[in-house]
Write a protein that binds this DNA or RNA. Structure first.
Length: 225
DNA sequence: AACAACCTCAACCGCATCAGA
DNA sequence: GTCTGATGCGGTTGAGGTTGT
């Protein structure tokens, strides 16, 4: 009899019929009448005790091999859940509390440049997580932006009306084109300055919080300021 | 005070990509 | 080259809190 976990279960679960269910395991019947056992993980909010166990194990083993960490910590959680909890909450140097004006400004600029690439944006805001920025964007900034647009009467740009995945694909290998004056916006395309966004936003060697110099320089070049 | 509507954010889900066997 | 499991990412959901009526 096969044993599956939440992580390997996927959408097939929807086509299966429950047979028995305990706190830890659920037996299901597949459409082909095969009986499989699904391991049931804890869901929902993390308890203080779970946080403590997870932090302890990560201190010993490091923040990788999440499935192993989940098992070793004795948490009835999937690895994915542990990873998320660590990255968004338990990780050291997480900044909590309100997003400052400076940070908000930076998010707006970076979003203009990168679109919904939250992890890249988060990489430029020390202590902030992609989840936090995404939430902040969805609850605050997108509304602000919509209001501004309504006031200025502007409809969606060509890029904005493009399906998200297509835009993403385009942005990964984006070529930023500018005219010779360095002052125009996207309209200028007579000369090319090509670069790889992922390389450009490789922050691994960066230092210092909220170093805005680089972004200001770039946005000025791109006419986004 | 009670209820509804709205807001926020932690957590989950599904998919893509990567790495190792 | 292919398969499989691990990891990372963005979108979505829902519980709990807040505000308005």
């Amino acid at each position: 009899m096969a044993t599956m976990t939440d992580e390997s279960f996927g959408k097939d679960a929807k086509t299966m019929t429950p047979i028995t269910s305990t706190k830890m395991e659920v037996q299901l019947m597949t459409p082909k009448n095969e009986v499989i056992t699904k391991k049931e993980f804890n869901r929902g909010a993390w308890t203080v005790e779970e946080d403590r166990k997870l932090a302890e194990i990560i201190e010993i083993h490091g923040a990788k091999k999440w499935k192993t960490i989940a098992t070793k910590a004795g948490l009835n959680r999937c690895g994915k859940s542990c990873r998320l909890r660590w990255l968004n909450y338990l990780r050291p140097n997480i900044k909590r509390g309100n997003i400052s004006d400076q940070e908000e400004d930076l998010i707006l600029r970076l979003h203009k440049l990168l679109g919904n690439r939250w992890s890249l944006i988060a990489g430029r805001l020390p202590g902030r997580t992609d989840n936090e920025i995404k939430n902040y964007w969805n609850s605050h900034l997108s509304k602000k932006l919509n209001q501004k647009k309504k006031q200025s009467g502007g409809g969606p740009t060509r890029e904005e009306s493009m399906p998200e995945r297509k835009r993403m694909a385009q942005k990964v290998n984006v070529e930023v084109r500018e005219d010779n004056s360095n002052t125009s916006t996207s309209s200028g395309d007579s000369s090319n300055i090509s670069f790889n966004v992922d390389e450009f936003f490789n922050f691994t060697n960066d230092q210092g919080p909220l170093d805005l110099g680089w972004v200001s320089e770039f946005l000025e070049l791109d006419g986004l300021l």
